[in-house]
């Protein structure tokens, strides 16, 4: 379990991490999502005691990181940087880490086997491909058989096979009851691996929700309508209390509307329809909308969502989701 309490990091004028409070729980994969520069890596470095928080607190199983005796036995981490001396062999890299935490040498052979690097154990790390380097980093994280694992952008630059391997590994670690915390800037990647989701933008917490809830709240469903008589249709719709929004291509969009209802309404008013189709927005769009608003809030104080290229109105975010995680940051 990792607990963050008002965690804050300030670099001069810039707030890289702004009062983050959330808990990473065992037995599942928690995705840590945010656009590049949102403060994910800084947060992770503070969790490992590498960067000192300006304010707030982070605890690993109730303890501060530097209070852990043999920390690799509690938490294993793969950070974004390569984090190893290229002139050292894979075996010696892991051996020096193992020795510093009183982990037996036999365990080095075990983790090398787990990540499939046994054949190149005596080779220097600088000759490794990106995927092999990533595997070596993961071997280091697994070394102390920790209950908590943390991966910073683990699939970056990997081939499909490597991505699949890491995904499977993370799921199996969580299935063993471990805490798995993984960062990414790709919603699509998270949708495939994470059970729980923590979203940040500009250092602020935007969402802390289960993956299922996130999908339910953010897969916006709407009805898309095209008609040669848009004005008449708009009148008919507003007469029935339905709000329609004009999309960039001239089509109309009705949030949460039922196509049957709209179709019948059009027939009653004798409006011809060229298109009447139920639509589902992708999670990637939902994520971009979520984080774009956090960026725009700081850029200017106009209504969030104004001038967005996809012409989705602020109403696109359902009221339920606003109350869930959007209400406080909009005020603040």
């Amino acid at each position: 379990m990792i607990e963050l309490e008002g965690l804050t990091k300030r670099y001069g004028e810039k707030l890289a991490v702004n009062r983050l409070t959330f808990t990473v729980r065992p037995g599942m994969v928690t995705g840590f999502l945010g656009p590049n520069g949102a403060g994910k890596s800084t947060t992770m470095r503070m969790m490992l005691g590498l960067d000192r928080p300006t304010a707030g607190d982070v605890r690993i199983d109730g303890q501060h990181y530097d209070g852990l005796r043999d920390p690799l036995k509690y938490i294993g981490a793969l950070l974004d940087a390569k984090g190893m001396h290229g002139g050292r062999s894979a075996f010696n890299h892991l051996l020096c880490l193992a020795q510093s935490n009183g982990i037996p040498k036999s365990r080095v052979h075990e983790v090398l086997d787990t990540v499939g690097l046994t054949a190149v154990a005596r080779k220097k790390a600088k000759g490794f491909s990106l995927g092999m380097g990533q595997r070596l980093g993961i071997a280091g994280a697994l070394l102390g058989d920790p209950r908590i694992l943390m991966f910073d952008e683990p699939v970056n630059g990997l081939d499909p096979e490597g991505i699949h391997w890491i995904r499977t590994l993370m799921k199996s670690l969580a299935a063993q009851g471990r805490t798995v915390f993984v960062s990414s800037h790709l919603m699509s990647e998270m949708a495939l691996t994470a059970d729980h989701l923590v979203v940040i933008g500009q250092g602020r917490l935007l969402a802390d929700t289960s993956m299922a809830d996130f999908i339910r709240q953010n897969s916006r469903s709407y009805v898309r309508i095209r008609s040669p008589q848009p004005e008449q249709l708009l009148d008919a719709l507003s007469g029935a209390g339905i709000i329609a929004v004009r999309a960039v291509d001239g089509a109309l969009e009705v949030d949460g509307g039922k196509p049957e209802h709209i179709g019948e309404l059009a027939a009653q008013h004798q409006v011809a329809l060229h298109e009447l189709s139920p639509q589902q927005a992708s999670l990637e769009e939902a994520f971009m909308r979520l984080t774009a608003e956090s960026v725009e809030y700081h850029a200017h104080s106009g209504p969030p969502g104004a001038g967005r290229p996809d012409a989705v109105t602020p109403d696109a975010v359902t009221p339920a989701s606003r109350q869930g995680w959007g209400s406080d940051w909009k005020k603040g």
Partner: peptide
Amino acid sequence: TGMIRTSLAAVPQ
């Protein structure tokens, strides 16, 4: 080499 982060994560003292 960036090893420092790995090293200090292993030995935070």
